[in-house]
Amino acid sequence: MSLKSIYQEVILDHNRKPRNYGALRSPSHHATGHNPLCGDRIDLDINMHDGRIDEIAFRGESCAICKASSSMMTNAVKGKSFQEAEELIREFREMLVDGIEKDFDHLGRLKVLAGVRDLPTRIKCAILPWHTLHAAMNSVAGATTEADDHEDQLVANNH
């Protein structure tokens, strides 16, 4: 799929009508994600009950790719258990950051974001909400895309 069509067909839909956009009244978990490179910033609220994501909402100022990724992520993890969400984060990273060649069909709609892999300068935009989710679920106050490089390095070093 060409970049323009990714924008037209998916990203813009979520950009205009972001799902789960806003704030939760009394979230059990919260984190703020920040991309210092472009000033993108998202706030993520979660209500976890018995280890399951009951409610999730995000808000913030960001580019279309980040907003679409956030929107699709909140749809994908709502109702999922902590482990299932962590697994999804791991798979999403594999698809986008690690560039692992395998069948990601089970990721469903999220698979369309794989197109961002061809835009190295924009991968951080797509991955930011996922880092933020990880931080929120693990009760870390914030996430930054800059930690991503570090993690990549660690991953690379372990290989």
Partner: peptide, 10 residues
């Protein structure tokens, strides 16, 4: 309504 990063990419 359009973020500069999207402008740059397009």
């Amino acid at each position: 309504g359009i973020h500069p990063h999207d402008v740059g990419t397009l």
